[in-house]
Computed example of a mutant assay.
Amino acid sequence: MHGLVGELIGTCVLIVIGAGVGAGIHLQDSYASGESNDWFYITIVWGLAVTMGVYVAGSFGSLGHLNPAITIAYALFGLFSWHSVVPYLIGQFIGAFIGAVIVIVHYYPHFSATEGEKQGNTVGIFATMPAINNPVFNFLSEVIATFFFVLILLNLGDFTKGLKPVIVGLIIFVIGAGLGPTTGFALNPARDWGPRLAYTLLPVPNKGIGHWNYAWVPMLGPMLGAIFATGLQVMLA
């Protein structure tokens, strides 16, 4: 239960801050409107969102994965107990969904003031979309970005302790800056699917569509990238 609760609350924190910056820059009439092309701004806030989520998750007794790709890849190679996989996954997806709900409530008047996708009321506030729609290369981009993210992460040891969550946030920032502009760098199936589902199901004013035809990319790409990185680390260790 500690793992489930920690992952749920930590992932919720991650999405509230991360999707919150997306809402702030895309929706009309917020003080952050007009910053939508500032990729540096977006990537650093997502990095800090992960930092805060890891700290909170760790304080509730989880390992701060916040990411099914990490949980599953670690379990496959004996770095994490299979007994804890299901509670971690449940916590991650539910936490991501709840985080998106909180952002929708927080920005509700701004969703009402933003008339459709042309003005910025899109699922991209919550989930990832490719800059150029090319499913094969979009998938490869997610595999590559997640591979390097997890490879670096594996060499931090317990990344919930001390200043290590700050380092995790910096990793997210540099991966996002260097490899993220192609797809929006999901790196994390729960971070994409939980908020995408919330945006699709909830009565968000003037909302666009969920673009579920693309959702397999941020689900499978990070999974494969994390498995490749963990396998390589275990093989060479």
Rank of each mutant, 00 (worst) to 15 (best):
E35N: 15
I94T: 13
F60A: 08
H83C: 08
G20T: 07
G120L: 05
G6R: 01
A198R: 12
L170E: 14
M52I: 13
M52G: 00
I144E: 14
L202Y: 11
L79P: 12
G6N: 06
I42V: 13
N133F: 15
G116K: 14
S62N: 04
A32D: 00
I175P: 07
W46L: 06
H211A: 13
F159T: 08
D38S: 03
M52Y: 04
P203D: 01
I104Y: 04
V166S: 01
N121F: 05
P130C: 07
V234A: 03
A96C: 06
N121M: 03
W82H: 06
M52D: 09
V5D: 06
F93I: 12
V123N: 05
I17V: 04
A127L: 06
A198N: 06
W39F: 03
P218H: 08
L187C: 15
V45Q: 13
H26P: 07
T128E: 01
M1Y: 10
E115W: 15
G34C: 02
L202C: 14
Y107N: 12
M219S: 05
Y88G: 06
I209E: 14
S81Y: 02
Q92V: 05
G178E: 03
V45M: 09
L63I: 12
A96L: 09
G18D: 15
P222W: 12
I72R: 00
T114E: 07
Q233M: 12
E142F: 00
V50K: 00
Y41S: 13
E7R: 10
K118E: 11
V56P: 10
F228K: 07
T11D: 07
G3C: 07
I72N: 00
N188E: 05
Y199T: 08
G116Y: 15
L179D: 03
Q119I: 03
A127S: 15
L14S: 10
P181F: 14
D158Y: 04
P87K: 14
Y74N: 10
P222Q: 11
I17P: 00
L14C: 07
V5P: 01
N155F: 13
A215F: 11
H65S: 02
G20V: 13
N155W: 14
P87F: 12
V174T: 04
V168M: 01
L79R: 13
G208R: 13
F139A: 06
I44R: 11
I9V: 14
T230Q: 05
L154E: 07
F97H: 01
K207G: 09
I144G: 04
I25M: 01
L197Y: 11
I132D: 07
L224S: 02
G124W: 04
H106C: 15
I98L: 12
N67K: 00
P195G: 13
H26E: 15
F185E: 08
P203E: 13
V103G: 02
G176M: 05
T114K: 08
G99W: 06
